[in-house]
C-alpha cells in the first residue's frame, strides 16, 4: 500500500469559548491517498471547516489539539516553525467558498498570482508571469494577459474562483483542501470549476479533501465520502454507492432530505435540529434525532467500525441495513 498523503488519527480539538474549552472535533480519523478525493459532508456547524483548519494548523490561539495529522508521514501538529511554513507554502493549498474575502481588492490579479512565485527569489518577474499565464490557461481562463491587469471586482465569481485555483496550484501542492469551493457559484459554473479540479487532481496526483454540504456533488466528484455530525465522523464509504448503500441513519436522512431531481416527492427531513460537538451526549451524537435510538445508543458512543466495506459508527448498522426511513418521523416544530 502506498503511504497516504494525509492521515488524520484520533484528532480531538477544543477551542476556548469564554474561558471554557469547547469540543469542536472528536476522535476524527481520515486518510487520503495520492490522486484521491475524499468528500466531507455534513450540516452547518458539524466541523468540516474546522477539520481543514486543523490540517493547516490555523486554529485560533488557545486551541487544544490531540491526536496526529500526518502529512506524507510527518506530524503537522508537532512541526517546528520552518517545517510548518514549508508545509503551508508547498505541501498543502486551500480553496475557500468566498474567493472575494481572500483576495486583496486593490491589487491586480497579476500581482496576486505572481507574488507567491516571486517569494522564492529564484525566478525572474518574466518567468513568474509566464508561469502564471500557463496556470490560468490550465484552469480555463483564456486571454490571460488581459486578466492579469484586471482587479478582482472586474471578474465574475466563477472566474475569480478559477484564479484562486490557479493560485493554489502555483506551488505544486500535494494536498488540496477545497472548502465549499463552488457553493457561491451557479450550477453551470460549478460544473466547470469541479471539472477543472477533477482534471487537475488526476493530472497532478493531488490528494483532495472536498468539503461540501451537497451530497450529490460529493458523490459525483469524490472517491470516498465521509459524513460528519457534531464534530464526529459517523460514516465513511465508497462515493459511488453513497445513495444506495449508506448505513448510518444520519447519512440516509441527509440523502432523503434532498429533493430528488426527476421526481416530485415530499421531502422527509430529519426531525429536530443539529447539535454542536460541545452539546454531544455521552452516547451516539445523533441519538436525539434518530428514529432508531435505543438505550445502548444513549449510553455508549459507537465507534467507527467496518460493515459491508464501509465504516460506520452505529450500534445497529447490520440490523437496520437497507430499512432506514424518516417517513414516519415527526416533522420538526
Amino acid at each position: 500500500m502506498t503511504t497516504p498523503v494525509l492521515a488524520i488519527e484520533h484528532l480531538h480539538v477544543e477551542l476556548p469559548v469564554r474561558a471554557e474549552m469547547r469540543t469542536v472535533l472528536h476522535d476524527v480519523s481520515l486518510t487520503i491517498g495520492p490522486s484521491e478525493a475524499l468528500g466531507l459532508v455534513g450540516e452547518s456547524g458539524s466541523g468540516k471547516s474546522m477539520t481543514a483548519r486543523s490540517i493547516m494548523r490555523l486554529l485560533s490561539p488557545g486551541a487544544s489539539t490531540t491526536g496526529t495529522i500526518l502529512f506524507e508521514g510527518v506530524d503537522v501538529l508537532t512541526m517546528h516553525h520552518d517545517a510548518l511554513l514549508a508545509f503551508r507554502r508547498k505541501g498543502v493549498a486551500m480553496i475557500y467558498q468566498d474567493p472575494r474575502a481572500h483576495i486583496n481588492p486593490v491589487r491586480t490579479i497579476g500581482d496576486f498570482l505572481t507574488e507567491g512565485i516571486l517569494l522564492d527569489g529564484s525566478v525572474s518577474t518574466a518567468e513568474a508571469q509566464a508561469k502564471v499565464i500557463s496556470l490560468l490557461d490550465e484552469v480555463g481562463i483564456p486571454d490571460a494577459k488581459r486578466r492579469l491587469r484586471q482587479y478582482p471586482h472586474q471578474l465574475s465569481g466563477g472566474l475569480l474562483q478559477r484564479v484562486m485555483i490557479a493560485a493554489a496550484l502555483s506551488e505544486e501542492p500535494r494536498l488540496l483542501l477545497a472548502d465549499e469551493p463552488t457553493t457561491a457559484l451557479d450550477v453551470t459554473t460549478q460544473e466547470e470549476v469541479m471539472a477543472i479540479l477533477d482534471q487537475l487532481r488526476v493530472e497532478r496526483s493531488l490528494a483532495m479533501l472536498f468539503i461540501t454540504h451537497d451530497l450529490d456533488l460529493a458523490a459525483a466528484v469524490s472517491d470516498r465520502v465521509a459524513a460528519m455530525y457534531a464534530g464526529v465522523i459517523i460514516e465513511v464509504g465508497d462515493a459511488a454507492s453513497l445513495h444506495t448503500d449508506s448505513l448510518h441513519p444520519y447519512t440516509v436522512g441527509l440523502l432523503d432530505s434532498r429533493p430528488e431531481f426527476g421526481a416530485r416527492v415530499r421531502a422527509r427531513p430529519i426531525p429536530g435540529r443539529p447539535i454542536l460537538a460541545s452539546e454531544a451526549p455521552p452516547g451516539c451524537v445523533f441519538a436525539e434525532r434518530c428514529p432508531y435510538v435505543t438505550e445502548r445508543c444513549r449510553s455508549e458512543r459507537p465507534i467507527l467500525r467496518e460493515v459491508d466495506g464501509r465504516l460506520v459508527a452505529c450500534h445497529r448498522a447490520e440490523e437496520l441495513r437497507g430499512t432506514i426511513s424518516f417517513a414516519g418521523a415527526q416533522e420538526p416544530r
Binding site: 453551470t188 460549478q190 469541479m194 471539472a195 459525483a220 466528484v221 445513495h243 431531481f261
Partner: peptide, 9 residues
C-alpha cells in the same frame, strides 16, 4: 449541470 447519481462534471 445538476449533480445527481452517475453524473460527472
Amino acid at each position: 449541470a445538476v449533480p445527481r447519481p452517475g453524473w460527472r462534471p
